[in-house]
Design a protein around this nucleic acid. Structure first.
Length: 399
DNA sequence: GCGGATCAC
DNA sequence: TATGGTGATCCGC
């Protein structure tokens, strides 16, 4: 898969890891951290015989074949194109970008606040003796959050816990300079995290009564009105808000400030933990910021789309995306939503600029409600029927 | 219109 | 021994 191709190193046995990319890196400032390639290979070696990984490999092969097919189609098409056709397409692409540009709105100030390693931070706040130890919230099956110490060993969210245990026990295997340790697991306590989230939301409400809580640890604020009526500076206001969050909960958070939600969201990740980044509300500042970003940073561009963009178009950054608008439209001609999303994003638009008032995500309301559990292979009919009943009851209660 | 795939947290 | 749960959207069929 894309990540395997780009990041996967060779292993002792000569096999390449194809699937995992537990990178993320800001925790490695002191040079103590694990090597991302070694981590990817370690995880792959530990899990390559599991059903989960075998399934991923299947998906991977299909996905890869599809990308190759699209790439070939595009190449063929471009070879058949006449000069006139090419020029006509260039014109249409240019017109589309100009049309988009008309909707650029730099008048609003959005802010995305993201709690730092939220679940782990809450647990360590309540058990300070864990502060300097590698801590993971979750279990042997799956890790929800790891603290920064654990991250130096290569431990990440969404990593199987039993593999994380081994990495912390044998840091040298993943290139980490940390001493061998025992990974400490804390079971998640969602009721507690919900309470803490309520405290943070009380503060967010002071700055935007209509803010949107995306998850327990992430919120979207529109600070425009607050800044307008108070006459204060965005950076200073967000500093204050983060300080209040710290005072109220004892926890740090990071924030991004920008002219739309997408830019603010991406920026919120820049100075993690306990930092904030503002993208100035000018076309130049926004484009300059977007240009340097790998497409993978765009919310909505995951592993698969990144891989397609890179194999079909040989494009990795938003600058390249913006420079190749015409080819992007051609490559994704059969997927107009994807094409539009990519072009908008490359220009630094969120998408909310184009939607009508009241047409926003939160205004629609929930569309589905579900409850699921993963079954163990050993489950028999009786056990499965019991599980089914539990699930049904749970959904009914929620409804 | 449905279900699988993808994506985010 | 062993890879989660919830909700949304897009797209192929």
């Amino acid at each position: 898969m894309a990540n395997g191709v780009q990041h996967g190193g060779t292993t002792g046995s000569g096999e390449k890891s194809h699937l995992f990319n537990f990178t993320g890196v800001s925790a490695n400032k002191a040079g103590m951290g694990a090597d991302r390639k070694l981590v990817a290979d370690f995880v792959y070696q530990k899990s390559k015989n599991s059903q989960y990984t075998q399934h991923q490999i299947d998906l991977d092969a299909k996905q890869h074949a599809r990308a190759e097919a699209i790439a070939k189609e595009l190449t063929d098409f471009e070879q058949r194109m006449t000069c006139t056709e090419r020029q006509a397409e260039e014109k249409r692409a240019e017109a589309e970008m100009e049309e988009l540009e008309k909707h650029r709105d730099l008048s609003r100030t959005h802010c995305v606040v993201d709690m730092d390693m939220f679940y782990a931070a809450v647990e360590i706040r309540d058990q300070p003796e864990l502060a300097n130890k590698p801590v993971a919230v979750g279990g042997l099956g799956m890790i929800c959050t790891a603290n920064y110490v654990a991250r130096l060993y290569g431990v990440r969210s969404a990593m199987p816990g039993f593999i994380a245990v081994e990495m912390v026990k044998n840091p040298q295997l993943v290139g980490s300079k940390m001493p061998p340790e025992e990974l400490i697991f804390v079971a998640p306590n969602f009721a507690k995290y919900t309470k803490v989230a309520m405290q943070t939301r009380e503060i967010f409400r002071e700055y935007d009564p209509n803010f949107q809580a995306y998850t327990l640890d992430e919120a979207y604020l529109d600070l425009t009105d607050f800044l307008g009526s108070s006459g204060r500076d965005a950076e200073e206001v967000v500093q204050e808000m983060r300080k209040k969050v710290k005072e109220s909960t004892g926890l740090t958070c990071s924030a991004g400030i920008g002219p739309n939600r997408m830019v603010a969201k991406i920026a919120s990740d820049e100075k993690k933990p306990d930092g904030q980044t503002r993208i100035q509300p000018s076309r130049e500042a926004v484009l300059e910021y977007m240009d340097k970003l790998p497409v993978r940073k765009l919310p909505g561009c995951g592993k698969v789309l990144e891989h397609q963009i890179s194999t079909i178009l040989q494009i990795n950054t938003c600058a390249e995306l913006r420079a190749a608008v015409c080819r992007v439209r051609r490559a994704f001609a059969s997927r107009p939503k994807t094409s539009a999303f990519l072009l908008r994003a490359a220009l630094g638009f969120s998408g909310e600029e184009l939607s009508e008032e009241g047409d926003e995500v939160g205004a629609v309301g929930r569309k589905s409600l579900s409850c699921e559990r993963t079954f163990r292979n050993e489950f028999q009919a009786v056990e499965l029927r019991q599980r089914l009943q539990d699930l049904c009851r749970s959904v009914a209660e929620d409804m």
